[in-house]
Structure formats: structure tokens, C-alpha cells
Design a protein around this nucleic acid. Structure first.
Lengths: 137, 137
DNA sequence: TTTTATTTCGTAATGATTCCTATTTACAAA
DNA sequence: TTTGTAAATAGGAATCATTACGAAATAAAA
């Protein structure tokens, strides 16, 4: 836990970003919850420990942390959703529509798609599965 | 072209929806452009032929046409994007970041994913590839 | 033609996100 | 330890996409 946070501190230092209480608590929050959180949810949780924290701070930090690849984002339910970035290897997620929990999907046929579309340049792709997890269905 | 529009007229009749000039022109618009359009773009194009057309009309019709599966939607660039629905068979799209043109991807490994995640229920999934098309790169 | 449900207009409301400026903070260098 | 300064924050206003709503208009069915 602590060494995990230290790893993120190093990442911030490396990018010449300041290590603030709010920023660290925010990373901690995402480490606790292995799922996508909306800006609003983050605000609600942060507000308990930092009453009156501004939305600007929330959004700026979400932007920054996504920028340095600490967080990854996607949009659903009309809101941008963020989760802690998995660094191990390329993969995608299954997202439970009920509890929001995610599961890693390892298989990704991006090469097959590249073969099929041989006259275009694929710069990125989005793969997301939605449904109900074991305990919710 | 006309028979294509007639096919949509039938669809509307079947769903007991009224065949209005605006609605038909809107479908026509999406038939012309084989790509995703945002509500704003649709408004701009419709406004040329129906000056003063309200956003309510645009949004309601986008909602309705998506509901009866004439249009499909997704979100990117912070906006909801709509395109004419392809009815032939299950597939996904490559979307050009520059011109917005789309290409069909036929290969979809949803069964492979279902095998991998054997303890969840997959209700839907999103696959989108982004990049530059032949003429834009 | 009359009826009736649907559509539309015009605008207000909502909700997410971004922007602005003054103030505060982290942290590196002295 | 103190200080300089670039980055971060608060607080709130502004913006942008989207939805809502009552009254009036209209298409399709009878």
C-alpha cells in the first residue's frame, strides 16, 4: 500500500508535478476502488476529507493524472469515467452495469483488425464489455 | 435512394410514428453521410432547410430514430454521435479522426471474450477503432 | 372533415465541464 | 532555515451539451 503510493509519488516527481495531499488522496481513492468513478463521485468522496474542495481541483487532477497515465478514462452514462491505470500489459475491461466493478479481458485482436483494415492507420481503439458480474446477476 | 427512403417510411409506419418532412430529411441526411454526426452538426445541416428548427426537434428525433434502431449512437469528443444503422449483420467501425468517415470491421471476437469471462453475463459491448483513413494519413 | 395522438416551437432548466483570478502551497536553491 | 517561484487551489462564473415543458400546429386515421 505505502510502497504502491511511493511508486506514484516517483511518477509525479519524474513528471515535475507537485505532490499534494489532495492529489495523493485522490490516487489512493482510485487504488481502493478497482472500478470507474465519475468526477462527481470523486468530488463526493474527496469532499469528506477536504470539505469545500473545488470542482476545478477535481477536474484538473483527473486531467493531469490521465495525462501522465496514472488514470485511464472512458465515457458512459453521459459522464466521463476514470479508473486507476493498469500498467502490466495491454488489455481491456468488462464493466458490471450494476456494481461498476471491472474485470480484465486479456484477449485483444487488434492485429487481426489491423490486417482487415490494411489501408488505414489505427492509432487507438476502445473495447469494452458490459453486463452483470457473477455476484450481481 | 427513393426506395431506400420508402423502407424507412415503412419502418416508421410499423412503429406507429408519423412521417414528417423533418424526420424524413433527417434520415436522408444520415443516408448521405456515412459517418457519425453530432446533434450540433445535424442541427446546422437541418437549419439550412428548416430555418429556426428547434433543438428539441433534433434531439427528440435522434432519440426516437435511435430507439427504433434507424440510428446507432456512441460518444466521443464529449458529444453524443449518431450514424445510420447498418442492418445487415453484427459488426463494428473504424472511425477516421480527421474526416470522421467510418469503415466497417467484420471481425468480432465476442464469443472468445465470453469464454474468457465465463462467470459473467455480457449484455452488450463496444468496439471502436480510431485512426487515419487512407486519404487522410 | 373531424378526431386524436404526435410533433414542433421557443425557451427555460439542468448537469457536466471548463475557465478566470486571486491566493496559497510545495519544494528547490541559497 | 529562509526565500523565490512555478504549480496548485478556491470560489464562483461561464460555457456547452442535453433535457424538459406548455401551448400551438400538424399528420394520419376514422
Amino acid at each position: 500500500m505505502t510502497q504502491q503510493l511511493n511508486q506514484y509519488k516517483d511518477k509525479l516527481k519524474e513528471k515535475k508535478l507537485k505532490i499534494t495531499d489532495k492529489r495523493m488522496r485522490m490516487i489512493d481513492l482510485f487504488l481502493d476502488e478497482e472500478r470507474y468513478l465519475s468526477a462527481r463521485e470523486v468530488q463526493e468522496k474527496m469532499n469528506k476529507e477536504f470539505p469545500g474542495i473545488s470542482y476545478d481541483t477535481i477536474y484538473r487532477n483527473l486531467y493531469t493524472l490521465n495525462d501522465i497515465e496514472v488514470l485511464e478514462k472512458t465515457t458512459f452514462d453521459g459522464e466521463m469515467q476514470y479508473k486507476i491505470s493498469c500498467t502490466s500489459h495491454h488489455h481491456h475491461h468488462f464493466i458490471c452495469n450494476s456494481c461498476g466493478d471491472t474485470k480484465v479481458i486479456h484477449y485483444c485482436p487488434v492485429d487481426t483488425w489491423a490486417d482487415e483494415l490494411n489501408d488505414v492507420e489505427i492509432t487507438n481503439h476502445k473495447v469494452e464489455l458490459y453486463g452483470l458480474c457473477k455476484s450481481c446477476r
